[in-house]
Design a binder for these strands. Structure first.
Lengths: 341, 341
DNA sequence: TGGCACAATGTAAACGGATACTTTTGTGCA
DNA sequence: TGCACAAAAGTATCCGTTTACATTGTGCCA
């Protein structure tokens, strides 16, 4: 059906190996032959059969992307597309393809990854999560399959990963509130088993203590990456005897819930309560007021993660942990200057 | 490196072909042999090499998903993840893999798809857009490669596609507003070259005329799927001498912009202006007020589209155009009963 | 002018698995 | 006991490429 190297060879009056060498830019092929063969390849619309190529080269030029299990996916939901764009841009540039996989539970996921690795389906993997102590990670290390985590792992410091400096990001966000004159600052947190949550928490407390501001237990509430979570966390924090006048919020979606809850309770943002959050998804500028958020460079995360796996495949030395710069995007929700108090 | 069929055969004391037949569940293999071979496969952690298998079977068990070009991607942004989950669920169930591809411009995209098709990389394709008169579609038809569009194509009625009944969806949404007592209803539209836009427009006008309500030029504004677009469209509509008291909005993201604009201008939602929109992305319930939106069954769209390609590959007869049911999710933004007028 | 180096190309054997065709083994029956 | 015939398994070839090794051809030098 499809055009093969043999048909090209026949039409060009050369042997299949010559055609193969033309494709590979082998030095010992004469200009003349090369040109003629290329013409015929174009004429016949020849494209090398990747399966055959892979079989002999033992490489697939394919990177697998493993989605998190549905239970952990919520964070990803809103920047998945941009992330994939970044991944795809890098892979396309390097002539690699992207295979997407995932399972609905731990076992299914492990089976899928095992199959991809053992059947020689991919040359490397990108794990879109940073779950601690994971059987998938064990497997990949054992099989010596190059892989990169999105977000650092709590358990393995030496596993290659791309991440933001979340400590610094939260530090910056909190500092920004302090610079606006805020003294009572709370923190709406995420699941504490995630490195991201721990890091942002650390940045928050660091900024507080440096500024000599109080850290109060009741001002910090752990939530999840769910729509209602922010709402509940906010209610808990604001019901304290002396509630904070500013909140650092672990994620934009949670911030949406907080914002809504605060508004419903009659708080004015930012006059009564100022907020900053993280990830800078598109809709943060469409809320009322627009939300100040830390842009984490989603596209760049995807782009760099792919670059890392590719480097690992090419046996190039890499830094085990690559940091993507963040940027605080200041919007109305955190600006004290608007306040008349 | 990896375990091959030969190693399994050797260890089991049979020939490679026997092992191959065990894998394929060939009828003429004795229970006993089959069991022994399977045990050894497990023991060695054998997984068939997909490349070798593909080479001889001339099939890849892989479906390609082609992303829209960045310029047209905005709509997709917020439900991409759910869509992919649907696709992946169906493919995994059927033992297929998902290859993701896309280009930054028309030529790049065509080259990518050509390569996937000609090099035998995929057995079928899913196009996540429904651009009219597309060179990619021409190519796929010519190469007899099974493919399914997401959303119907304006130019080719007979191209397989999954879609909502957008006429009916917009009709339902508009009717809902009418049932709430609305008489002056405007429409914030999208790019008219899209079938989706045309269909929703048609449903809107149909509902109006059935109810004997006026259709006014100035009440209908074409926008784009951009954040600011809704804002501008709203401004234009509301500056009419006699502005509408309700708006049907082509998409949730646009509706966010409209909502923000209306609120800033001092309109109360839904008392002064009621709104309904489409797609029901997660954040519609977190706006103030929450937005009534038509759920289009994103997961189901992905799931069904994949099912269609798989059927085409198996030469099963399919309906060229598959309709996914929609569902109006009523929230505060459209409820007139709240009004005191 | 024979011999040699080297460039250009050809030949053939893999890569791992599927399968048409062939051989071996086993069973029932005359 | 021998034979037919079916079940079970083995042999060999092919899928489309790459590549080690072999062959051919040319020019140059002793």
């Amino acid at each position: 059906m499809a055009v093969t190297i043999k048909e090209v060879a026949k039409k060009a009056g050369v042997s299949p190996s010559t055609v193969s060498r033309v494709i590979a830019n082998h030095p010992r092929i004469s200009e003349e032959t090369s040109k003629r063969v290329r013409e015929i390849m174009d004429e016949l619309g020849y494209h090398p059969n990747i399966m055959a190529k892979s079989l002999v080269s033992r490489t697939t030029r394919t990177i697998g992307v493993v989605l998190p299990r549905p239970a952990e996916e919520l964070l990803l939901n809103f920047f998945f597309y941009e992330l994939i764009r970044g991944v795809l841009a890098q892979l396309t540039r390097s002539g690699y393809d992207l295979l997407m996989a995932g399972g609905t539970n731990e076992q299914e996921e492990l089976e899928t990854v095992t199959r991809l690795v053992r059947s020689g389906r991919v040359d490397g993997l990108l794990l879109l999560y940073s779950r601690a102590s994971d059987p998938v990670i064990h497997l990949l290390r054992q099989e010596k399959m190059p892989f990169v985590l999105l977000g650092r792992s709590l358990d393995y410091e030496d596993v290659p990963s791309v991440d933001n400096d979340n400590v610094q990001a939260a530090y910056d966000a909190t500092k920004h509130l302090i610079a606006q004159g805020q003294r009572r600052i709370g923190f709406v947190s995420g699941p504490t088993k995630l490195a991201m949550t721990q890091d942002r928490m650390a940045g928050y407390t660091k900024a507080l203590s440096e500024a000599g501001l109080p850290f109060k237990e009741g001002w910090v509430v752990e939530g999840e990456f769910l729509l209602e979570s922010g709402y509940r966390a906010m209610a808990s924090i604001m019901s304290q005897p002396e509630p904070p006048t500013a909140l650092v919020i672990i994620d934009d979606v949670v911030a949406f819930g907080v914002l809504k809850g605060l508004t419903e309770l009659g708080y004015r943002i930012p006059q009564d309560v100022a907020i900053v959050s993280f990830n800078n998804i598109a809709l943060t500028e469409l809320t009322m007021p627009p939300i100040t958020s830390v842009d984490v460079g989603t596209y760049q995360l995807g782009y760099t993660a792919s670059q890392m796996v590719l480097r690992m495949i090419q046996q190039v030395e890499i830094t085990a942990r690559q940091i993507i710069p963040h940027r605080l995007v200041v919007r109305e929700s955190s600006l004290r200057t608007l306040s008349l108090t």
